[in-house]
Design a protein around this nucleic acid. Sequence first.
DNA 1: ACTTGATTTAATCATTTGATTAAATCAAAT
DNA 2: ATTTGATTTAATCAAATGATTAAATCAAGT
Lengths: 205, 205
Amino acid sequence: MAKKTNIIEDHSTEEKIKQAARKIFTQKGYAAARTRDIAEEAGINLALLNYYFRSKEKLFDMVMGEQMQQFIRGMRGVFHNEDKTLIQKVTEMADNYIELLKANPDLPIFVLSEIRANPEKFAAKMNVKSVIANSHFMKQIAEETKGKLHPIHFLMNIMGLVVFPFIASPLLKTIGNLKHSEFNNLMEERKKMIPIWIKAMLKAK
Amino acid sequence: MAKKTNIIEDHSTEEKIKQAARKIFTQKGYAAARTRDIAEEAGINLALLNYYFRSKEKLFDMVMGEQMQQFIRGMRGVFHNEDKTLIQKVTEMADNYIELLKANPDLPIFVLSEIRANPEKFAAKMNVKSVIANSHFMKQIAEETKGKLHPIHFLMNIMGLVVFPFIASPLLKTIGNLKHSEFNNLMEERKKMIPIWIKAMLKAK
DNA sequence: ACTTGATTTAATCATTTGATTAAATCAAAT
DNA sequence: ATTTGATTTAATCAAATGATTAAATCAAGT
């Protein structure tokens, strides 16, 4: 049995397959994705795909795991920092995530779809909870709202303002007659506006 | 060839199949949904399913079409009304949609996933654009923001605040340690808060 | 009782699709 | 030149799955 040899400088085939898999999986979702399409997208053949990753599911788990990590990575720093103000953190989150999502617009709907389709599988990997719940960030929110509202409302609000436009972008582009570049310009504007909006919402009553 | 006979009082088999299809399709998405599962869920057999709807795709189109209609139905009234204030309309939208989504929590991610997976198919059915773009509602928003921001920002904001929590609910429930009933209570709170928040955002600068 | 249409049962097809295998080829290192 | 591992080619499997069919059964209306 042959095995891959490049362990360090693996910028060739293995990574190429993972990139292709990421693209096809995020575009179509797990069930609709075809390993043949992934192989073609990667510029290799089906046999080699199964030679590197033993199965579709293994390949998916690999890609999915990395995507989730990417999703969480940006958070951890922000959520547990104890020096910055709430609004500073909101600004940082908006900046980071909008930048990430401009590059990977299908990421959220992919992640959220697969979680919905397979909740048990992700219940395990859900260190998300430990990252966010009881974070300094959540305490700051609780402080601002002082009992009036559940802090999770503002987590919903922030994420909703940042993420939702990307999830609904096909619809929004149609409604607003927006070219892709125009849509991205709007997202650029939102980097500035979201902290302002959140601030206003926190004060409102 | 046999054909169905109940045309008016069709509250039995055909509707039962559609309900089952709606459930399975929205839960798993088109690709992952199995016609066998739909038949089982409907309490009938595979042959009968194909006897009523000629194919999986036809069944899907039927269900999907109705779902889209449901999505748009609520809008049309609100968006073209010329008597109510902007905030009154936001209140009405939040009420209507949160109520709808409490009953069908998987609806948004299903609709948006399928649009993403198959944009061409829905480009045709997109009378959505005509319903929303150039509506009185959008003009009211444009008036409020007077050139400062693209009105679509506020459409994103309203929809994001209303819809996103349902899309991300598995995640949010985990993070917030929320039971389903507690989650729904929060959504109830949002009916009141979203108009207040939107008002605050419109004033903010 | 008879007819008619709805529904089931059971078997079967054809296609798609994930997976595997063996042999051939290619490229690079030794 | 030889060896070694990566990759291709081509063929094939087995399972899942959408679809179809024929015959039997059931229920309701006449």
